[in-house]
Amino acid sequence: MKLDKDARYTKEHEWIRKEGELFIYGISDHAQDQLSDIVFLEPPEVGDSFAQGDSIGVVESVKAASDLYLPMSGEIVKVNDALVDAPEIMNSDPYGEAWIIKFKASDPAEFDQLMSPEDYEKYTQEEE
């Protein structure tokens, strides 16, 4: 399982990274591996606001569908539209090209509650 050392993680297998004033969000390598061939992404719209833990979209593979939950509250600033046309990027480069959204956090401190890469790795091992 690949990890991005700069990111923080959730139990739903999403990651978040700081990028200047903004935060950037995607699904983890473990998530894409579990889903297998990802075929579809329904992202939120720019300008949508979410509370912590809200569902912001859906990602689908051939045999499964998974809701995307935002572990922080905030407003969507940018959506990676390239993924809508080529969702398979989420399989090949989950921490790089396959970022899903960038958002402005209402409470940046929520970031600190997320799991560190080490904790997340332990969590996924326990889960299996």
């Binding site: 579809f40 689908e60 593979s61 051939v62 045999k63 499964a64 569908a65 809701d67």
Partner: peptide
């Protein structure tokens, strides 16, 4: 195809 919309995968959603 597009089965993830359906009940056997999405269940209550």
């Amino acid at each position: 195809t597009l089965a993830p919309r359906e009940q056997h995968i999405r269940r209550e959603k």
